[in-house]
């Protein structure tokens, strides 16, 4: 994309089950698809195991020999590099013995900082800018946050931010609609509990909207803290506090219960979309936003189709030149 904003695309929708998107030729097809649509950078997502072979530095190395080998793989498909990588330290992984860790538990902090290091080193080695992290687990899995909990969460992210900054990598905390940090006020408190020099906010337009926070207004309010953006749309807001339902990942986000909404996230320009994408992007331009804008189609449908529709929106509705 030729624009003053820097555009990237997340690969997450291609890797939607544990045994897909494993063969290199499948990954090449996704990379070529994004390249043809004008996206020169991608966002990775952390995962686990041998089938998630873009999900962990050591597995990427088995596949490509080295960070340079991985970059060569991307470049063979005319993709120039990696903008960022999403990582959730609360997601148990095989490589960490399926340990269940929480950022609000100070006893877990040392292990969380340690587990961030391979990702930070890898991102630095491939010239990526941001480690995008889930700051805290889902609300339904824990008691409400007290003031000290937010302080504890802030501490661990300051520590991770320090490690990342030392390697020249940014750390951006990603708000999501199931998170225990749910309201705008809680999000403000989390930002206030972290060091602006070390920790930024990854603003996801659809997640905020579902969670009842206006992404344009919040960006206007805290634009100096926003270091990363996920751009996607939604047709629904969580008006019934479905995020508190047990198993909200399934009961809410896959329509297992509640209002039975089986798909929440949609492409830019979707009918009935709640995100004012044009206003949001105009605000980014007005404030001279310097980071990556990562377009996502996660939890959508056919990934190539959605990437094409998103690219169309950028070109036709946001006047971004494809090449």
């Amino acid at each position: 994309m030729r624009d003053t904003l820097r555009w990237a695309y997340a690969l997450n929708q291609w890797n939607i089950r544990m045994d897909v998107f494993v063969r290199h030729e499948d990954q090449r097809r996704a990379l070529k698809t994004l390249s043809a649509l004008g996206f020169g950078h991608i966002e990775l997502a952390a995962g686990t195991g041998r089938w998630d072979n873009l999900g962990r530095p050591e597995v990427i190395e088995i596949n490509h020999g080295s960070p340079e080998g991985f970059l060569a793989f991307l470049r063979s498909c005319s993709v120039n590099g990696v903008s960022s990588m999403f990582w959730d330290p609360g997601q148990p992984v095989e490589e960490e013995g399926w340990a269940f860790r929480s950022t609000r538990n100070r006893d877990d902090h040392a292990a969380i900082v340690e587990s961030a290091k391979p990702f930070v080193d890898f991102l630095a080695a491939i010239g990526a800018e941001q480690l995008v992290a889930r700051p805290v687990g889902s609300a339904w899995m824990q008691p409400p946050l007290g003031r000290d909990d937010i302080a504890a969460i802030g501490e661990v992210w300051n520590s991770v931010g320090k490690v990342a900054a030392a390697a020249g990598v940014g750390l951006a905390l990603h708000y999501d609609c199931l998170s225990a940090v749910h309201t705008a006020d809680e999000l403000r408190r989390l930002l206030d509990a972290t060091d602006p020099e070390l920790v930024g906010l990854a603003l996801d337009t659809a997640e905020l909207t579902i969670g009842g926070i206006d992404p344009v207004a919040f960006y206007e309010e805290r634009h100096e803290r926003v270091t990363h953006v996920h751009l996607k749309d939604t047709r629904y807001a969580d008006t019934g506090e479905e995020y508190r339902m047990p198993g909200a990942e399934t009961t809410m986000l896959r329509g297992g219960a509640g209002r039975r909404i089986e798909r929440w996230f949609f492409e830019l320009g979707t009918e009935g979309g709640l995100v004012d994408v044009k206003a949001f992007v105009a605000a980014l331009r007005r404030h001279g936003y310097p980071g990556w804008v990562v377009v996502e189609s996660d939890h959508g449908g056919n990934p190539a189709e959605l990437a094409m529709l998103n690219s169309w929106y950028l070109q036709q509705e946001l006047s971004v030149a494809r090449t």
């Binding site: 939607i16 399934t250 959508g300 056919n302």
Partner: peptide, 16 residues
């Protein structure tokens, strides 16, 4: 694996 609005997924997608 079955078709869902979020692409092909295991039936554990949801109870239905």
């Amino acid at each position: 694996v079955t078709e869902t609005p979020q692409g092909p997924q295991p039936p554990s997608f949801n109870r239905a």
